[in-house]
Write a protein that binds this DNA or RNA. Sequence first.
DNA 1: CTTCCTGCAAAAGTTTTGCATTAAC
DNA 2: GTTAATGCAAAACTTTTGCAGGAAG
Lengths: 144, 144
Amino acid sequence: MELHEEAAARLASAGQRYTPTRRRLVEILARAGTPLSLPDIVRRRRDLAQSSAYRNLAELESAGLIRRIASEDGSARYELAEELTGHHHHLLCSSCGRVQDLHLPTGLERRLEDTLDALARESRFASVRHRVDLIGLCRTCAPA
Amino acid sequence: MELHEEAAARLASAGQRYTPTRRRLVEILARAGTPLSLPDIVRRRRDLAQSSAYRNLAELESAGLIRRIASEDGSARYELAEELTGHHHHLLCSSCGRVQDLHLPTGLERRLEDTLDALARESRFASVRHRVDLIGLCRTCAPA
DNA sequence: CTTCCTGCAAAAGTTTTGCATTAAC
DNA sequence: GTTAATGCAAAACTTTTGCAGGAAG
């Protein structure tokens, strides 16, 4: 898998290793295809200590392999970085914290990007990315 | 102040009171003009218990008077609802969690809104609002 | 006098850290 | 052998809850 070579290379250039644990975290996130909470992740990897999960996720994030999303319920969700999965946005459930993927039409996406970049420059913000989310109630939490 | 009448009316119709504490919370948020964290708020109102702050903020939020924002650092920020301050977006500092206001040009805003609404419908999400944020480093946290 | 609001303290939930041990290079 | 990674347990931090006293309608 090219994904794992990419991962190993990026970690190596930061002086870190692509251990079996990290490989499995990447696999779990790749297989899920949607952002997972830490409990979600640990449930799929029962022998992994929470502290190791957090530490490895942080490591993978700073290597640019995964992305951490602040969910509405205060906890975080993790997914593969956009370089690996393509740029997209999210639907956030304000009740249960669930996160679902969302893709914008190219035209709007580009226009949005240009505007946000210009505004970031004006605001003297070193913008590393933008986030465009819908916030509401998912199917499970919505009243019938 | 019309603001306080509005606040009192909304709370009243939900069977709640516009107590001095709540009034001061609204004043603090109005004066700040930018989203505040809970420590920020308590610092400006030293005699207020944290639990009361949280409870009142939740109350004011469900009355539609204030809005809670999930910051990048995992904690929450609070600001007056958009009905009172106008629709806008945010710049989020991924290092210190600071939040700064941002306004989009009307044309882009409207187009964005239409598209997001359509997508929400397709995704069977009951969308109550959207959020468009820039995430990066604020002036204080950016390396020189 | 009934309902809501407050403060204190304790609990719950998420994330971080210290430290001794193990594994990778 | 040196450096990094792991697991366990404890700590830090944010937010929620229980309860008894106090204020408002």
